[in-house]
């Protein structure tokens, strides 16, 4: 093992270093940040048998081009359906591949999805703030945004030829048509008609979408006399309604408190795919009870951990594969005619 270096040749806006997030400081106005799609992010690390929360690159639709200065280094790319170009060859996302010194990898938006993840077989050296390298877009605290010319150092860098190739996607990993929520905690500020409109009408993702939140176009939900309520805590997934009646889903870099009433809260499990929607995409909300939300959280945790374990499971090395073939061959050779 040695160190490898990756040079950023091109990076669009909002291409950042992220780890699993910065927890425990909501009380000080510090949201967790971390990946927009936590499942995609964890999958990239798991595909390289790395700890699922370790620092990786989050790529926006602005795209990213990396050049390997020192290597070789194996990378895993997951997230939305982005397109990869390596040595003038195009690949679809969800790949493990190895970059040799001098080789360039480009990642750009594809058929769907807003975020891609690049994990490394090693450890990216990153600035930490409050114990985490997660980058908050508002302040750029943490590992920070990537821009052209920046060189990333990867320690304990490895080439893992046995892991190269396509990564199997999680089940149902596609742009969602329906997003599950629990109502509230401030649904009392909305009329029965508004709650009905929220649960039955379609919403469209607007262009105002970044790591802080996703503003929606849809039925007007102007809250009743709620503009002067005391500011209340916000959590990732809160659906707040501003005075103009429009809803915004707060995401990874959300403010921690706010005075707009929250009509509903998106289940943590549905936030990952939600973040892959793009401006113009249409979806609806499905209300579940908090009891159902709890059961969903438990079931989904089980499914995800089984999936990630499978991704991380040891792969046969090339030598082992040859050995297996030889053994099989040997058995066949020894079979009497």
């Amino acid at each position: 093992m040695s160190s490898a270096r990756l040079k950023v040749v091109h990076a669009g806006p909002l291409v950042t270093l992220q780890d699993e997030g910065r927890f425990g400081a909501l009380r000080y106005g510090v949201s967790a940040a971390g990946p927009m799609d936590r499942l995609g992010f964890a999958s990239a690390n798991a595909s390289l048998a790395r700890p699922v929360g370790q620092t990786a690159i989050e790529v926006s639709l602005g795209g990213l081009t990396l050049e390997c200065l020192d290597g070789p280094l194996t990378l895993a790319i997951t997230g939305g359906a982005f397109v990869l170009s390596l040595a003038s060859q195009n690949l679809s996302g969800w790949q493990v591949l190895t970059l040799a010194p001098g080789e360039q990898l480009s990642i750009r938006g594809g058929n769907w999805g807003s975020w891609a993840y690049v994990a490394v077989a090693g450890q990216i050296e990153a600035q930490e703030w409050l114990g985490s390298a997660a980058t908050a877009s508002m302040t750029n605290f943490g590992g920070g945004a990537l821009s052209a010319g920046k060189v990333l150092t990867v320690t304990q860098a490895e080439a893992l030829p046995g892991r190269e190739g396509p990564i199997s996607l999680p089940d149902h990993y596609a742009p969602p048509k329906s997003i599950r929520v629990t109502l509230g905690p401030q649904d009392r500020h909305f009329s029965a008609e508004q709650i009905a409109a929220f649960t039955q009408d379609k919403f469209t993702v607007s262009g105002a979408y970044d790591r802080m939140g996703m503003r929606l176009e849809g039925p007007s939900l102007s809250p009743e006399g709620a503009l002067s309520i005391p500011s209340e805590p916000i959590l990732r997934g809160s659906v707040q309604v501003a005075g103009d009646g429009r809803a915004t889903i707060l995401l990874a870099d959300h403010g921690t408190t706010g005075g707009y009433p929250k009509i509903a809260t998106v289940l943590a499990e549905d936030q990952d795919l939600l973040t892959h929607l793009r401006a113009g995409d249409v979806f609806s909300f499905t209300v579940v009870t908090s009891q159902e939300a709890l059961q969903i959280a438990r079931k989904e945790a089980e499914v995800r951990s089984a999936y990630l374990e499978q991704l991380a499971a040891p792969r046969a090395t090339l030598a082992e594969k040859l050995m297996q073939e030889n053994l099989v061959g040997g058995v066949i050779a020894e079979t009497p005619d």
Binding site: T182, P185, E232, L235, T265
Partner: peptide, 10 residues
Amino acid sequence: FRPIAGHAVL
């Protein structure tokens, strides 16, 4: 107490 999603209480 107001339950929120599957992981919080206000």
